[in-house]
């Protein structure tokens, strides 16, 4: 266990000139990143005229800060600010967790096991599914349609037998990532109709389902690559000892992949936290999320930068907290190398 804590970094400190170069680079980029954020913070305390009449930079020095935007959003609107906030938190957390759970398993499966589904079976399944959906759209009872579909599938399957071309893991993985290729604007209306038929419009459930599916491919692909870097030997010896795949996955693989899990979780959290177009269409009154509130600040009189800035700050704070919390796990990548060494 002692080896775990051994640091694998360069034993010698950085030479002075290199340290200067590194710091210069780090500080420069930090400035590039922080200046726009500083501008958002300052703008949230400005009156419209401070924005309109050319730039002012320092509160109390070249302009008198005002809390009007904060007051408007937290006092005047209150529930119209807090409800979307609550929705955003719940939707993003639940959907990212689900995507991580499903996607991690799939990523691992696609790396370690071989799947060889037959092309004919896939096409048959697709055709049956389309038929079932079409039947349900024509208002055939759901259970009857699904039952009929299963029967049809099994019947034709028996007739066709088990032959023909198969597809491999890479094809499955590519199919998954290809689900992100169509821009949301192309699929938003069909998805709207789908959730309308399921009576899920304007619920958090609709957003959670959508975001989980949208983020799954990213989780699968990233986690597959993180798992790739984990040495096989541990798993193999555990398998020889008779551990089940679940046990190996849960007790050996996942702990080793913590940095990847943390990074991936943060990524998909951010994606669902910030998503706009689906949120716009799948919600109306109850389930609206914060990105809608931000976009809404550009109304008939031009963008209301002050309100927008406050909302951006409200939105970004929890994610920063999350990033700080998860950063420690990303840093634990140290453990991986040490355990294997």
């Amino acid at each position: 266990m002692a080896r775990v804590w051994r640091v694998r970094r360069a034993p010698t400190a950085l030479p002075a000139w290199l340290a200067v170069v590194f710091y210069a680079a780090l500080v420069t980029w930090a400035a590039v990143v922080l200046f726009p954020l500083y501008w958002i913070v300052v703008t949230s305390f400005k009156l419209p005229i401070h924005v309109y009449a050319g730039p002012v930079y320092l509160p109390f020095v070249d302009f008198m800060p005002s809390l009007h935007a904060w007051r408007y959003l937290f006092v005047d609107l209150r529930n119209d600010t807090l409800r979307p906030f609550e929705n955003t938190v719940i939707v993003a957390l639940v959907s990212s967790t689900l995507a991580l759970v499903l996607g991690t398993g799939a990523g691992y499966g696609l790396l370690r096991f071989h799947y060889r589904p037959r092309l004919s079976a896939i096409l048959l399944f697709t055709a049956t599914a389309v038929l079932v959906i079409a039947a349900m759209a024509e208002r055939v009872h759901g259970l009857a349609a699904i039952g009929g579909g299963v029967l049809l599938f099994l019947l034709v399957r028996a007739v066709l037998g088990r032959s023909g071309r198969t597809v491999g893991n890479d094809d499955i993985a590519f199919w998954m990532i290809s689900q992100r290729m169509l821009p949301p604007v192309a699929v938003v209306i069909p998805i709207y109709v789908m959730f309308q038929r399921l009576s899920l419009l304007d619920t958090r459930a609709a957003l959670i389902i959508t975001y989980t599916a949208v983020n799954l491919p990213i989780v699968v692909w990233l986690m597959r690559d993180y798992f790739r870097n984990i040495s096989l030997e541990l798993e193999e010896s555990a398998a020889i000892d008779g551990a089940s795949p679940y046990r190996i996955f849960w007790s050996i693989v996942l702990p080793l992949a913590t940095p990847g899990l943390a990074a991936t979780f943060l990524l998909v959290l951010v994606f669902s936290w910030n998503e706009y177009l689906f949120a716009l269409f799948l919600t109306s009154a109850n389930a609206q999320t914060l990105p809608l509130s931000i976009a809404a600040q550009n109304a008939t009189r031009g963008p209301m930068w002050w309100y927008m800035s406050v909302l951006i700050l409200i939105m970004i704070t929890p994610v920063i907290a999350m990033a700080i919390a998860l950063e420690r796990y990303i840093a634990k990548g140290l453990l991986v190398g040490a355990l294997k060494g």
Partner: peptide, 22 residues
């Protein structure tokens, strides 16, 4: 199978209909 199936099914059912409709 159980490692990939849930992900495959969710993606399949959420993508096939929008893809065909669009």
């Amino acid at each position: 199978t159980s490692f990939v199936l849930p992900a495959v099914l969710l993606l399949f059912f959420l993508s096939i209909f929008p893809l065909l409709v669009s």
